[in-house]
Design a protein around this nucleic acid. Structure first.
Lengths: 162, 162
DNA sequence: CGGAATCCTATCGGATACTG
DNA sequence: CAGTATCCGATAGGATTCCG
């Protein structure tokens, strides 16, 4: 990373000077944030990498399901046991969606009883760093936005004036 | 990271032996994936860090909006110009949601015409690594799942037998 | 300029029941 | 065991209109 927190609004709360003419002429795309052309879009296009990643983890339960699959192949009922409040319908939908996206494969052992194993593909495993980053970012958010407290100074207790 | 791709199902396609009793007794939680207790949940709870991060970027247009705000404070109409297909209603909703989550602040210059500037807070800036990871992961996905081609061997062109 | 209010439709996801 | 089928309430989000 190159220019990490350049125009960071760390001093939010009241403006410092607010010169109305300090706007720079929009030099270029942020190479950190948007390294390739496919990300320089003005709307949610499916070929934008960010949208592709979002689509992969979209839907309730999906990240939890992926977390379980990261531990190795799992059967249908096994997944139901690991996520007891996830209904069979939604689990089925999620697994099919992940299959259609090439993130999960399934192999069925015929015989009795029918045994199925869902496993992540290489593409599915590629989601691991994203899950880790989601976790890390989420922890940072929970810390930074705990009780709305602004970072640094001790949290002035605002009176319940509602 | 410690045991990166241990039980990775890279050889999917046909089972190797499939002993029905090879299930390990579920040793522990993956410390890479779920480092703290708040992530060891069996359902989408809002205090799970992953859910917190997902909530922050949830909703159509949100990541694009965050991308624009990463470039510095922006006004309402300015954002509309940057994302022309985003309706005023949804933009307003997104900005309010981000404000309520403590990710964005707004300052209004009263006078004429009314000027408003939306800026990321420190918590909002904390989303930057996540956006970058979303981009990187998305690029990996688009590469790995391009035309469903399995990685490694050259893509045998399947005849159009439909 | 910077929004809020309304309306309307499509999709999501939970509950339940049924099948191979 | 491993799903699918059906119903149904709740949002999401786009279009349009109105307001300070």
């Amino acid at each position: 990373m190159r220019h990490t927190a350049s125009q960071a609004s760390a001093d939010v709360g009241h403006q410092t000077e607010t010169h109305p003419q300090d706007r720079e002429p929009r030099q270029d795309w942020d190479e950190d944030l948007v390294p390739s052309r496919s990300g320089r879009t003005r709307r949610p296009e499916p070929d934008c990498p960010v949208e592709a990643a979002l689509a992969a983890i979209s839907g309730r339960w999906t990240t939890l399901l992926l977390r379980e699959l990261m531990g190795g192949p799992r059967g249908f009922t096994e997944l139901r046991a690991l996520l007891p409040e996830l209904s069979a319908k939604v689990l089925s939908e999620r697994l099919r969606s992940l299959r259609e996206r090439g993130l999960v494969t399934v192999e069925r052992q015929r015989g009795f009883p029918v045994r199925t194993r869902y496993a992540l593909t290489e593409a599915g495993l590629a989601l691991r760093p994203l899950l880790i980053e989601l976790y890390a970012t989420g922890e940072a958010l929970l810390r930074l936005t705990a009780t709305e407290a602004p970072p640094g100074p001790p949290p002035v207790r605002r009176p319940p004036a509602d």
